[in-house]
Design a protein around this nucleic acid. Sequence first.
RNA 1: GCGGAGGUGGCGAAAUGGCAGACGCGCCAGACUUAGGAUCUGGUGUCUAACGACGUAGGGGUUCGAGUCCCCUCCCCCGCACCA
Length: 847
Amino acid sequence: MTDNFFHTNFFITEVIFFMPYEFEKIERKWQARWQDSNCFHSEADASKEKFFCLEMFPYPSGALHMGHIRNYSIGDVLARFLRKNAKNVLYTIGFDSFGMPAENAAIKYKTQPHKWTLENIAYMTNQLKRMGYSYDWRREAITCLPEYYRWNQWIFLQMYKRGIVYQKEAPVNWCENCGTVLANEQVSEGVCWRCHNPVTKKNLKQWFIKITDYAQELLDDIEKDLQGWPKRVRIMQTNWIGRSEGARLSFEVPELDYKIEAFTTRFDTIYGVTFIALAPEHELVRKMIASMNPDESEKLQAFVKKVTAQSSIERSDAKAEKLGFKTPFYGTHPISGEKIPIWIANYILSDYGTGAIMGVPAHDQRDFDFCRKYNIPIIPVINPTDGTILDGATMKHAFEENGIVCNSDKFNGLKTDEAITKMLDWGEENNICKREINFKLRDWLISRQRYWGTPIPFVYCDKCGVVPVPEDQLPVRLPEDVEVKEVGHSPLLDLPEFLETTCPHCGGHARREADTMDTFFCSSWYFDRYCSPGDEKAPFEKSDVEYWMPVDQYIGGIEHACLHLIYARFFAKFLTDIGLTKAREPFTNLLTQGMVLMDGSKMSKSVGNTVNPDEIVAKYGADTARLFILFAAPPNNDLDWSERGVEGSFRFLNRVWRYVEDNLDSLKNHNGKIVKMHEIDNPELRDFKRKIHSTIKDVTNDIQNEKQFNTAIARLMELVNSIYALNDKSEQAEFLRREAVDVLVNCLSPFCPHITEELWEMLGHENMLCLEPWCVCDESALVQDSVTVVAQINGKVRGKFARAAGLAKDSLEKSILDEKIVQEKIAGKSIVKIITVPDKLVNIVVK
RNA sequence: GCGGAGGUGGCGAAAUGGCAGACGCGCCAGACUUAGGAUCUGGUGUCUAACGACGUAGGGGUUCGAGUCCCCUCCCCCGCACCA
């Protein structure tokens, strides 16, 4: 009750007790001025150094959340700072506006995805403008509009022409809840990245993009070109791409007239093979079922059914029980010619390698577990270097380390490293194996059984089969006037006017592809589009992207480490291959900002611990919201939301405001003269002058090099404290105050652009602050007159003394030794050594 | 299990190997006040009456000097995890 009273009467109590600066009026005033003056528009200009500042564009889910505010506030500081530092800055925003939530919302609210999405975009655009972000709005890209997605279709067709796009029937990830298939990257720990429901495998014919063609380059360029990325992300991508070197070999199955191919990284263990295992999805399994006796065949079918019905979580959990089925078939060992039993096993992945393995239980823990369970023999072919002789019957676990080869004919006695090379050489000479590189990265499954996405530009002709839609017929428009009735049923399937068409080849009857593209396709090149907004002839102009790309600073969440950030890198490489761009890596520097937490856990609607940016902006203004979120933690840390902290930031801005307002006459009367350090005698004023310029130096460095906005803001708070603390009323002091206030306002402006524009204007400046150059640090003002020298005895601080700066080492030493306290402390002891750091410290080592 | 990033006051956090805790929050005291959740001033790591001692997860090491470098251990967070 009491709480409620204070909340609802906040402004009334404020009016009575505390009159804050009029942030709402001021913020709206400057937002309008910026908009009217087009001051954030940028054009390619070869005579200027460019800077492309990019933020991961939002999905228009309805409203901005604090994560967005953090992301975009970081970006805006950089954009504004660099603009002031004479860079030609490209900074804009857009909406990643295709995707499932729009369909779900359409069902829930009985609306249309199109309508819902555009309304959200309108709302969020207002929010972004209300935050004062300095976007060039002319460059905005909205992916769900035909003028954008037609170029998705166009790029897709270029990929098709180059053989990068293909259709394939395969066991693919299926999310029942979303009613669609998912790419590999979009399944994490066996669950759907979006809805967290377990994913199962389904055999479907789908569109894929051959990202694997670029696997090696995607890997190589991580270390070569992505030094400006967090190490974490580089490692995540490296692991995701998952390169492994090995060999391919095959086992003949004469009975079935088939050759089982297998990939191994340990060809040196080839003599230890005691079984072959196939994934239940392996093509040979079908052949086996067909050629087995009915009784056995039925059992095998039941086994396959049981295993494939398991969800990805169950199947891919390393701790899950290994299940096997012994088939009556045998493969021939490629060297010894022995008959090796063939099993079907649940732990063999159908989509890695060949979906079949050579089982070496002595040297692979998974195979070991499997063999112990099913009593398959275990033959060691490597012994530890310590002389132990392994025995397959008694081994407790697989020996996976390097060692000495045994039980392997002429290779016995070789060390593992040597054995791998020699055996592979021998294997290749004798046509037993072939060296091969395998990647964990899979081709990108691009089809989605959803309505709200880019239509895949293909038709199925009764006569000609799968036919691409000719480029001059693009876009294939997505009908907007639809009713989404249920999840998992695309309304396109009920729209004959969309589905029924004619074949571009033969003019006969054809049916359109009703699947749409993964929305990650849209976000893989939107930054290129920012360079050439509204281009009607191409996705973007070559000259534009060659000027602006690559992105100099990208800012976004780490959750895209192995999603968007891999897809976009792939796109950059593909687009350069077809001559459209030059930058093979799209993002030179990456900053992954931390999450915004509330009471230690992530803000989320479902938990109900969110803070609505609108309310914060209404209560304290955009400048305060920005300041708090930048001050509370360094950008890459998680940030705990604190209303108290917000109040602190608000207090600071009021403190700045009040100072200028209360001292405005004097400040205005002392404009235009910069007092140089050498003109100042008063030590207090010399300190003050030094403070002004050390602030410029530190703030510049913190923004530019460290991207530590929290410490930059701390320095500005110190400057404000110094301004308040200065008592001197001399003319010189007044001029210095004026200088300090100008510096403060300018340096604060990237963080809090509105209040600083207003103050700048109040101070009598005529130009908009956002266009004014950044402050220049006067190095001569940094010179220290006196320094505090620490006297240590045996490393412990025993006194602090003021000394003139720049004293020579020996005179400093002497002067410290002469100090009474020091003399007392070292009395009766002998000096072993003195370490002196000029202007800092003298450490006397005594015995 | 593997890989990565961390562990500093009551809290968020600062510290090119050189005064640990800048700045902010909170707290305490004072001033101005009819009033204070405004504003201003001062204080605020722990122990101690004090001198002083101790203090950056714990233990060891290098160094004149370690939050920072090296080794071991513990704890939290993140990513990967049957990838042959």
